[in-house]
Simulated scan of single mutants.
Amino acid sequence: MELLNAIVITVNGVVWGWPMIILLLGTHIYMTAKKGFIQRFTITKGIRLSVEKDTKKYIHNLDAKDDTLVPVVK
């Protein structure tokens, strides 16, 4: 059991150290380039949507099982 504990601690130190940081950063750079730098185009829309007041009224969708909201159409 002590050997297993030592192995887990060693692997944990390696995986959650610099290799994980490099893997996450590399994945971020790769996906940003592959998707055409989409963050540049959507960041302003995301900020605007998160700070503006929502004026639409919604009702519960009684047909859906996941309790989603549906905009009211007049």
Rank of each mutant, 00 (worst) to 15 (best):
K53H: 12
I7A: 15
Q39F: 08
F37Q: 02
D63W: 10
K35I: 07
Y58V: 03
K34G: 01
K56A: 13
K65C: 05
M20C: 03
T55P: 02
T55K: 11
L49T: 01
N61P: 06
I47D: 00
T32L: 07
R40A: 08
T68L: 13
K45I: 02
T44W: 09
I29K: 08
E52T: 13
A64G: 06
K35F: 06
T42R: 01
W18D: 04
D63K: 14
I47Y: 04
L25S: 10
K57N: 11
P71K: 03
I43A: 10
K57D: 12
V8W: 08
K74A: 15
T44N: 11
K56F: 12
G13P: 04
I29L: 10
I21P: 00
K56P: 00
K45C: 02
Y58Q: 00
E2G: 14
I22M: 07
W18K: 08
D67T: 03
I59D: 07
L4S: 10
N5D: 09
V15F: 03
T55I: 11
F41A: 05
H28G: 14
K45V: 04
N61E: 13
L24R: 01
K45Y: 03
W16Y: 15
S50M: 15
I29R: 05
G26Q: 02
R48G: 01
S50F: 12
Y30P: 01
I7M: 11
I21D: 02
V51F: 10
I47F: 09
G26H: 04
D66N: 15
I22V: 14
L62Y: 08
T27F: 11
L3P: 02
K57M: 09
K53C: 06
I9F: 10
D67H: 14
T68F: 00
G13R: 07
P19Y: 01
L49K: 07
I43F: 09
G46D: 06
T68Y: 03
L4F: 15
L25V: 14
D54A: 07
T27C: 14
L69H: 05
M1A: 13
K35Y: 09
F37H: 11
T68H: 02
D63S: 14
I38M: 06
P71H: 09
T55D: 12
G26K: 04
T32G: 03
I43T: 10
L24V: 09
T10H: 08
V70M: 13
I47Q: 01
M31C: 07
V15C: 02
L3I: 15
K45N: 05
T10G: 05
F41H: 01
K34P: 00
W16K: 03
W18S: 05
I22F: 09
W18Y: 06
I47S: 00
L49F: 04
